[in-house]
Structure formats: structure tokens, C-alpha cells
Design a protein around this nucleic acid. Structure first.
Lengths: 295, 295
DNA sequence: TGATATCCATTAGTAAAACCGATTGATCTA
DNA sequence: TAGATCAATCGGTTTTACTAATGGATATCA
């Protein structure tokens, strides 16, 4: 049984005239006759009675007509679903990000559900290691993460922005007035930091180690939001990505002298996989947001 | 899009392994790859991600998988419906008959609905002319009717039994005792007869005309049942098919001398059309009933 | 009633495709 | 690093969908 045959059959049944049906399907009457016959043979029953000059549906024909129509309808629905997917009317979008991207994600996360009501968005926060694992296993469509160097060839990468690690304090904090601070000054300073395992923190450890700078880490937190909330109390100092401070009006970033603490933010994709249109659009939206911040 | 491709796709999606899927479908991996690719091209989207050594469904693939399954399911349902039709589990049976066949039909009409619950039976009573017209236009599956000669070549015919036209009266009627009656005796006799247009009546008219016998027709009725009811009152005489008296215990058939009034009963089919299994079985049931009556 | 037109089936030949076997290139594993 | 395994691709064969032409049967019309 072929879809082609079903289409021919439905048309022939509808206008009860092989020659005209053939013309309507842009084939010859010969072909239509043959294909109808093939269908009848496969089903083991005639679908048409050939009575004199004209044809008419048999009982089996009438019954099968309903099914044939249903099948062709389902085919259309299937194509339609793919079409909608291409137009982003439906589907799922799974985004992975480290906490530093929270404020960057916010505007896009607000606007997308309005623009594309059929789209479901999942945001998974985690450390870079975990995110990369989930990206590899296709649990995520793309991830947002920091890397010092260009990410390895197992991922496709797209640079988002360059961010530096800064010192962050409350506006009320004495050091809030500083234009910048020397790396060496951090040695022995009391701090709260993100937990080990967090990409920013691991990067930080490496750099500080290299420069033999050892802050006195009093508290470690595995939740950046909680960390910043504590910072607002005015008592604490931390080191983190500049971007992570976006939206925290009571906090101030104090740049650290030198270029050692620059990091690049990337969108990472699993190499060689199909990219959802929704994902592409979402990243485009993110880039737009970044451009605005630069201005 | 081809059903074949859908089947390949579903299998490949299910076991996420082209080589194995190909084996399961009894084709080579080469063919499967080609057909999947053709499907993807037609849909305008990849259905699988080829990541490293293995394949996995894309978002589009997951969505389309549901539709592909549905389509294949519908195909099976369509085939199943035809199958059931062949086994007579469902369908319609449209029978045409003249009133003379009422009692013959009765047993089959009683037993069939029990044996085949999915079957709907329509019985249409009418005169031969009307029935033949409905048979020609396929409104009826077959008709039961009388003919003097073998029916014309436009129908396929199957002889059921030979019946003769008899005189019928109530048991209480004076003539009820007669062994037989001469054709000539009917001349001038008061009678009620079936209306003109009824096959038996028209046949009767022809024969009587031929023998110059003219009964005094006082009443004409277009309903044999009503006619026989009137006969039961004891007052009337009629001429009709012997078979039509079956089941009327208060009526007596008086044979008419000579062979002129013999008629053959036939099942008539539209020539060259598909015969429903239900119809064939029904006729077989009728023949069984006739055999019993003969015994 | 015969001539004509129209219908579907059939036939023979052609174009398209589905398919296979073999090979390639990539990737995972021991 | 060698071997195994995967999907993609290439060239060639078989199958089949298709067309054009023809035949047979049946309506239509002068």
C-alpha cells in the first residue's frame, strides 16, 4: 500500500470517474487504473464495481475510503507539525547556564513566552562541568558558560562577551569608593566566595594561586543569589564575574588592576547536531541584550 | 513521503541504530540511510542527529515519530476494516423482494442478526419493476423476484424455486373444498387482486388475456398482506403465487389446471459487481429454507 | 440501428526509484 | 594504535510507476 495509491483512490472515489480523477491527479487514466487495481489486489477485495461504462464504490470501497481519508489527513498533520516546528510555534527549549548569566537571561526569558506561546523553556542552572555533561548527552540545547581559552573542539562555540572578575561590595562598604584595587591587596582579605566546583570560583583559584594571593575565605556558598544577598548587608567582600552584579543596585563592582582576570563568555553547542530554530532565536535575543548593555 | 519510509523511520527511531533497524526491516543499512535522508529532505528538517557513531532523534524527529506511528496505525486499521468486511463482521445488506417472498425471508431475517451482530439488514418490498431499477442503480444488493423466462442478460440470476399461480380462498369459502379449478371457470368470477404494476398481477393479466379469461376484479390492493387479511374474512377469492400463502393458516390454495401459470422465482444480481459475502450467505440461507419446505 | 464518442482495462516500452554490495570516513574501544 | 563498528556514499541492478497506444464494452445520437 502506498500513499500515492490512497490519494488516487480517494480522488477516484470522490468523482466516481477514473479518467477525470486521473486528470485531476496529473497522471494518465492508465496509471490510475493500474494503481487502483494494485490496491484492490493487496486488500483482497475490489474497491470499485466496474458496471458498464462507469465505476462505483463497493461496500469495501466505502469503508476503506474513510480510512484512506484519515491516513492522508494524518500525513498532512505530520507535515504540519514539522512546519510549525520550523516556524517555532511549538517545541521545547532547554537552556543551561551558570549563575553569572542570570541577569542576562532575564529579559529574553520574559519576552520569549509572549512571542512564542507554544514554546516551553527549561532553564537549568549548574556549574560548567555539569552543564557540559548535559550538553554532551543532548539533555540541553545549548549552554552559557565561561572559558579562559576557546572551548575544545567537541563543542561549537560562539563568543558572547568578555567579562572580568571584580571585587564586589555593598555601596555602604568602605571600599565601595575605590576606583580599582591591586591584586596583591586581596591577599589575606576576608571574603565569601562561590563554592568550589563553580566555574568562576575554580578559575579564580587558579589565577590567585598563580599570583600567590590568598584571601581568607570565611564562607563558601553554592548559590550566587544568596551570596549577593549577604553582600547587600554591607559586611562582606567577594570576587566574582562583573556580569553577575547586573541588577543588584546596592552593590558596587571594584575593578582589579591588570588583565589576568579577564574571561570570555560563550554559547556552547553540541557539535554536529541540529539546532532548534527557537535556540538560535534565543541566542540572537541574548546578543541583542548584550549590545544594549554596552551602549 | 512513502509509508515505507515511515516504517523505516519508526523502527530506526525506536532502536536508535540504523544498522540494526535495517536488519529488522530486512533491508540493507544503505537503503535505510537513503530513505531516512529522503524523508528528511522532504520534510525540510533532520529527524536524527548523527552525533559521533550513533544517531538520536532531533526535536522534529520526536514530534514526527508520533505522527508516523499514527499513520501506520491508521493503515492497519484500514486493512483491518477490509478484513472484517471479508469475514462479515460488519456492513450493510440491502435486500429487495416482492411480497410473495415474505414468508420465505422470515427465517433468515430472524437468524442473521444473531449470527452477525455487526450486520445491518434492509429489506425493501416493492414490485419487480421498481426492484430491478433499484438493483441497476446499486441501491440493493440483490432482489428476489419472479420471472416467466430466464431474466435478461443485464442481471445474473439464480433460480430459487418454481411456483404456480393458484386460486386462494378462506377455509370457510365454498370453493375451499375443490381439488383444482379449471382456468375457464375463472371467467367472470368476482375477485380481489394485487394492483397493476405488481409482477404477479402483470404476469396474471398476460396469461388470462391470452386465454381470454376475464375475472370480475372488484378490488385491487397494492399490499399483499392487506389482501390476504381480507381473504380471511371468507368472502373473497384471489389469484396469486402459491408461496405467498405460506403462513396463512386460514387460507387454502386451489390449484389451477394446466401448466400455463408456472413461474420461476429468482435471486437477481447486478451483473459484474462485487458480491458481498453477507449477501451470498443470506441467499444460501434462503436456499436451505426452500429445501426444508420441499421435504 | 449503425456511427460516434467515451469509458476503463491492458499492453509494451521508458523513466524513475528502491535497493544492494562495496567502500569510505569517522569514532569508539581494547 | 589497531581493530571494530557505525552511518554515508557510490556504482550498478532490479523493481515499479508511468505514459502512449490499443482494445473492448457501453452509452448517445442521428
Amino acid at each position: 500500500m502506498e500513499l500515492r495509491q490512497l490519494a488516487y483512490f480517494v480522488k477516484a472515489a470522490e468523482i466516481a470517474h477514473f479518467t477525470e480523477a486521473a486528470a485531476a491527479m496529473y497522471i494518465t487514466q492508465s496509471t490510475l487504473s493500474q494503481q487502483i487495481k494494485a490496491l484492490e489486489t493487496e486488500l483482497g477485495m475490489p474497491l470499485f464495481d466496474r458496471v458498464g461504462k462507469h465505476v462505483q464504490l463497493t461496500e469495501a470501497g466505502s469503508v476503506f475510503l474513510l480510512h484512506a481519508r484519515q491516513i492522508l489527513l494524518d500525513v498532512e498533520k505530520g507535515k504540519q507539525a514539522i512546519e510549525e516546528l520550523q516556524n517555532l510555534l511549538t517545541g521545547e527549549l532547554r537552556i543551561g547556564a551558570t549563575y553569572a548569566f542570570t541577569s542576562l537571561l532575564l529579559p529574553a526569558l520574559t519576552s520569549f513566552p509572549d512571542k512564542y506561546p507554544g514554546l516551553r523553556i527549561f532553564v537549568h542552572y549548574g556549574n560548567t562541568e555539569e552543564l557540559e555533561r548535559k550538553l554532551r548527552s543532548s539533555e540541553l540545547d545549548f549552554i552559557l558558560a565561561f572559558h579562559q581559552l576557546t572551548p575544545g573542539k567537541e563543542f561549537e562555540s560562539q563568543e558572547l562577551f568578555i567579562s572580568k572578575v571584580v571585587m564586589a561590595v555593598s555601596k555602604k562598604h568602605p571600599m565601595a569608593q575605590l576606583k580599582e584595587i591591586n591584586l596583591k591587596s586581596l591577599d589575606g582579605m576576608e571574603m565569601i566566595l562561590a563554592s568550589k566546583g563553580f566555574s568562576s570560583r575554580d578559575f579564580l583559584s587558579t589565577v590567585l594561586e598563580k599570583h600567590k594571593v590568598y584571601p581568607a575565605v570565611k564562607i563558601e556558598l553554592n548559590d550566587v543569589h544568596a551570596l549577593l544577598s549577604m553582600l547587600e548587608s554591607g559586611h562582606w567582600v567577594t570576587l566574582l564575574n562583573e556580569r553577575a552584579l547586573n541588577g543588584w543596585k546596592n552593590l558596587v563592582a571594584v575593578p582589579i588592576a591588570g588583565k589576568a582576570l579577564l574571561r570570555k563568555a560563550y554559547v556552547l553547542w553540541q557539535r554536529g547536531t541540529y539546532r532548534k530554530k527557537a535556540a538560535d532565536l534565543f541566542v540572537k535575543e541574548l546578543l541583542k541584550g548584550i549590545e544594549k548593555q554596552k551602549q
